[in-house]
């Protein structure tokens, strides 16, 4: 059979269509691999950020994912084991199928790993963009969370396709869609008892409404009281007295007690909002 795909293309559209159907059945191994490749897993960091000056310390950088680059990457991957023109044509014919499979696999990779519902088709085909955050906040708060939101106001999120740390102080996120607002959260699982550091480095407790738990606005810091500042031991009794004096009085004339103290000492997860 000396016929090639080119012959087929001209004479037998039906056969070609069948062959293209084969592309929709890209083997799962290949599809998964392509999905990871399209999210740039395995690509060295110096290829992503070729000059360190693009991402200095304590910086946040937004970017679009250049799909031409990604497709070139895929082309390169498919160039392996090519022995003949027929192998090349194989890639030519299946290109669109491979492209679709790559997009779909990369769109669902994270949700599959996490067992979440995969993002819809519109998200899979959306313009991909993302951010790089290089900061001590990344190394210090390993559970840091990034939320990308569709609108300036509202809670609709842009699906997150990849989030990981190419370096201990750097976090890389790729989204399916262009967010108008990005929130960077202190790890929420770390909602805890905590203290706020004032700009002058001193420590304080930010007061809360004793009934609702909401932070007072404007914030009212009450200095932290130590038994032994070098050792970091707190004077809980004096702190409680001080908080009782500065915080709004609990409703119904109730005395300030350990429960109230707990409310005041809660340090909710911090979040910083960036708009694009």
């Amino acid at each position: 059979m000396a016929a090639t795909l080119d012959d087929l293309r001209t004479s037998h559209e039906g056969v070609l269509a069948k062959l293209q159907q084969l592309g929709s059945a890209v083997p799962p191994t290949i599809q998964d691999w392509l999905g990871r490749l399209a999210l740039l897993y395995g690509v060295p960091f110096e290829n992503l950020v070729p000059d360190v000056r693009m991402l200095p310390k304590e910086s946040l950088r937004f970017f679009y994912l250049d799909m031409n680059w990604v497709e070139s990457l895929v082309d390169g991957a498919f160039s392996t084991g090519v022995h003949s023109g027929r192998d090349i044509r194989f890639h030519d014919v299946l290109q669109s199928a491979i492209r679709d499979a790559t997009r779909a696999a990369s769109g669902e990779l994270r949700s599959n790993l996490r067992g979440d519902t995969p993002p819809g088709e519109s998200a899979v085909n959306a313009t991909r963009c993302g951010l790089l955050l290089r900061s001590e906040a990344v190394s210090g708060w390993p559970g840091l969370e990034v939320r990308a939101l569709v609108e300036l106001v509202g809670e609709d999120t842009v699906p997150l396709l990849r989030m990981d740390r190419p370096a201990p102080d750097t976090v890389l996120c790729i989204f399916a869609g262009i967010p108008k607002r990005v929130e960077i959260w202190e790890p929420t699982e770390d909602l805890h008892f905590g203290i706020t550091r004032n700009n002058d480095g001193s420590l304080a407790v930010l007061l809360r409404n004793p009934e609702t738990g909401a932070r007072l606005d404007p914030s009212v810091p009450t200095p932290l009281l130590f038994r032994n500042q070098a050792k970091g031991t707190l004077n809980m009794a004096a702190l409680a007295t001080s908080l009782a004096r500065s915080a709004p009085a609990p409703a119904g004339g109730r005395a300030f007690g350990p429960g109230d103290f707990g409310v005041q000492m809660i340090d909710a997860a911090d979040k910083e909002v960036f708009t694009t």
Partner: peptide, 22 residues
């Protein structure tokens, strides 16, 4: 515990925001 010169909010708040270009 790691170095904690500043709080999370302060650190993130002071990052330089921009696009990925020289």
């Amino acid at each position: 515990g790691t170095d904690d010169k500043a709080s999370f909010g302060q650190l993130v708040n002071k990052v330089n925001v921009g696009v990925l270009a020289m």
